[in-house]
């Protein structure tokens, strides 16, 4: 039996403890916002937060998360439905195209801004280069992160010039 706290709700689950967390989230819990992309931690589509740290859930055994706090894309907005600043910035910048990678991108960006309120371009490169987007939305993701940082009260970061 594994105990997971996901987006504030606690679940007792009877799963093989070696099952990657991704499949527990998608299949057992039915939270399909977290995506399967590669299965080997190469693309970031499965990014969730484990005790606040972004992890690749496709290679993280469920037992690693036992007793810990997990946050997924479904837990980023407030319970009342107010979008997170990163989500709103993604809409304002019209970031997504096919959208499949964007749950992971949003989770990586939220984690970045929680640890670094005014990320530089180099900080964005370092934090976001584990997340692949085949539609090539990277320039808009970069703008989205800067816009979200500004919205969160760090107006100087929005002025950062690339390069």
């Amino acid at each position: 039996m594994i105990i997971l706290t996901i987006n504030g709700k606690t679940y007792q689950l009877d799963v093989d403890p070696g099952t990657p967390l991704l499949w527990v989230i998608r299949e057992q819990l039915g939270l399909t916002g977290t995506k399967f992309g590669c299965g080997i931690a190469q693309c970031g589509a499965c990014t969730v937060h484990l005790d606040g740290t972004p992890i690749r859930s496709c290679v993280t055994p469920a037992q690693v998360a036992d007793g810990k706090f997990i946050r997924t894309i479904e837990g980023i907005a407030t319970p009342e439905g107010t979008l997170h600043a990163v989500q709103q910035a993604w809409i304002d910048e019209q970031v997504p195209q096919c959208g499949y990678c964007q749950s992971g991108q949003v989770m990586a960006a939220v984690a970045l801004l929680e640890s670094n309120a005014t990320p530089s371009d180099a900080d964005i490169d370092a934090a976001m280069s584990g997340n692949v987007c085949r539609c090539g939305t990277y320039p808009r993701i970069r703008r989205g992160i800067k816009r979200a940082a500004a919205a969160l009260g760090n107006d100087d970061s929005g002025e950062t010039v690339n390069g």
Binding site: L31, T32, G33, P96, G99
Partner: peptide, 20 residues
């Protein structure tokens, strides 16, 4: 604004793999 974007930032967009 594109009509599909809001569902693609909150995890609710339904892709083929999301059928349940």
């Amino acid at each position: 604004l594109r009509n599909d974007v809001p569902t693609k930032v909150d995890g609710t967009a339904q892709f083929g793999i999301d059928a349940r």
